[in-house]
Design a protein around this nucleic acid. Structure first.
Length: 480
RNA sequence: GGCGAAGUGGCCGAGUGGCUAGGCAGAGGUCUGCAAAACCUUCUACAGCGGUUCGAAUCCGCUCUUCGCCUCCA
């Protein structure tokens, strides 16, 4: 089965074929950097990280762009509100640019820990003001935008396709919510700002043909996506909450400017909820990644996220993550045993597992099913190893499958089953020697049925963070 | 009000017109000096009411409930 992707635009799964054979252009809406990343960011970027990794695994050369929004836009069309980054700068008594840099670093730090690959290009909005101005100029020239008092608006009525992504095709549905400004200078209530004139005291502002001001909320993504990826890009991803108005406006301004389709496959990931309600900055219930990483290994969080589908909402609870942690531990254990195992006579039909894994990933990146298959495979491996070991070929195939899917594609396992064993530092070697001695002493104690001593050794080591396991082949130890 | 998503067993969470999801937790067992790990067996399902069908948790309709978007948000 070929790769199928659920396209939000057509609301159906479609076979994926890139515009240019062998190459994929992909753009995912990045964060607005005015605070530390939270679980919602994690779900989004882990999901798209797997998309990226799977596409690369399939052999595509993927150009992946993720912007950094370092202009904290207000509401897109009202005059009220304050620039988020400027506000944070005021709170922290520093410059907006420092805020943007600080939280950009923080963001990458968290994403690195989650095993998320960095994008090929991470353009900033402030670094692309000329490109946004050029886009706006084109729109004015083509009659899709108009200027009023130094502000520039996109004319929704000039673009018939407006609403095709979100299903808001009637005037009624496009009406902004309760806060329609009575004396709006816009021609149509749904028109959105491309450029805003800076009010007095506004820190982040640039020269433009219309006023000293700043770009509207939607301009940056269109300008940067098209600058680096061309007028038509293969995949554009983002959170569901951005479908309307953000992505709808992106489509309108991009297609109006170029006359070409903007995005071939729109992908939207679902939200993280906490106790059944949305995690929102304004609700104050969002969970910081740095906080949660104190409690759980970041890879556990990654695994937790991948245990549900990217288009499903994910409900966070301590209990659920805990369950994931135990589950992941099981896979790790199996992976460890496998790599350390000696050849035997047992066989496993690895092709069947591989097919299921490929099918799952090709079916709109169904990571929960892929993980379920890995659990099945893990059980088969454990059973085989319990009965004396795997045949050389089967063992190699299993290692390959775990490497490909567990490490390379899903990123939930690593290549360092036992970091101490592989480390070459003198400390590691010393520990290795000391452990060998302790295990020998313990073994002697057990042989003479001195269980008090043997259990003491085990308990004290456990307190020291070293776990002892008695297996058929003798005692084993590991950190943690 | 408009647009959209969803209701699965104790919890999380896939899937589907007839055939085991998976993980966690629970019960029993094998192994073990005891643990741990592993393996085996096992218990709780598809919101409700109608309809289509040989057969529906899966399709259709209605009802109830939840969630998201319509204001910045991954």
């Amino acid at each position: 089965m070929p790769l199928k992707i659920y396209n939000s635009l057509t609301r159906s799964k479609e076979e994926f074929t890139p515009l240019h054979p062998g190459q994929v252009t992909m753009y995912v809406c990045g964060p607005t950097v005015y605070g530390h990343a939270h679980l919602g960011h994690a779900k989004s970027y882990v999901s798209f990280d797997v998309v990226l990794k799977w596409l690369r695994h399939l052999g595509y050369r993927v150009t992946y762009i993720q912007n950094i929004t370092d202009v904290g836009h207000l509401t897109d069309d009202a005059d009220e509100g304050e620039d988020k980054i400027a506000r944070q700068a005021r709170r922290e008594q520093t410059d907006p640019m420092e805020i943007a840099q600080l939280y950009t670093r923080s963001y990458y730090e968290d994403m690195d820990r989650l095993g998320v690959d960095r994008p090929n290009i991470a353009p900033t909005a402030t670094g692309h003001i000329p490109d946004q101005i050029a886009l706006i100029r084109t729109l004015i020239e083509k009659g899709h935008a108009y200027e009023v008092n130094g502000n520039v608006y996109f004319s929704v009525e000039s673009f018939p396709g407006y609403g095709k992504l979100s299903g808001r095709t009637t005037d009624d549905a496009r009406q902004p919510g309760g806060r329609v400004e009575a004396r709006s200078e816009k021609r149509h209530p749904a028109d959105f700002a491309l450029w805003k004139k800076a009010e007095p005291g506004h820190l982040m502002k640039w020269e433009s043909p219309w006023s000293e001001g700043y770009p509207g909320w939607h301009a940056e993504c269109s300008a940067m996506a098209m600058k680096y990826l061309g007028e038509t890009i293969d995949i554009h991803g983002g959170g569901m909450e951005n479908k309307f108005p953000h992505h709808e406006c992106e489509i309108a301004q991009s297609e109006a400017a170029t006359g070409h389709p903007y995005v071939r496959y729109w992908m939207h990931n679902n939200m993280v909820t906490v106790d059944g309600t949305k995690m929102g900055k304004s609700l104050g219930n969002f969970i910081n990644l740095k906080d949660i990483f104190n409690e759980f290994d970041p890879i556990v969080i990654r695994f937790f996220i991948l245990q549900s589908h990217y288009r499903s909402p994910l409900d966070f609870s301590h209990q659920a993550v805990k369950a994931s942690q135990t589950g992941l531990e099981k896979l790790r254990e199996s992976w460890l045993r496998l790599t350390a195992s000696a050849p035997g006579e047992e066989d496993i039909d690895t092709d069947a597992y591989e097919n299921r894994l490929v099918e799952a990933m090709n079916d709109d990146f169904n990571t929960p099913v892929a993980l379920a298959v890995l659990f099945d495979l893990s059980k088969a491996i454990n059973t085989a190893l319990d009965s004396g070991g795997l045949k050389e070929e089967a063992r190699n195939d299993c290692i390959r499958l775990f490497s490909t899917f567990g490490i390379e594609v899903l990123g939930i396992l690593d290549n360092r089953p036992n970091t101490v064993n592989e480390a070459s530092t003198s400390i590691a070697q010393a520990l290795e020697g000391a452990m060998s001695l302790l295990l020998d002493i313990r073994q002697k104690a057990r042989q003479s049925k001195d269980y008090e001593t043997s259990d003491l050794i085990r308990d004290r080591l456990d307190e020291a963070g070293i776990t002892i396991k008695d297996t058929r082949e003798g005692a084993e130890w590991k950190l943690g």
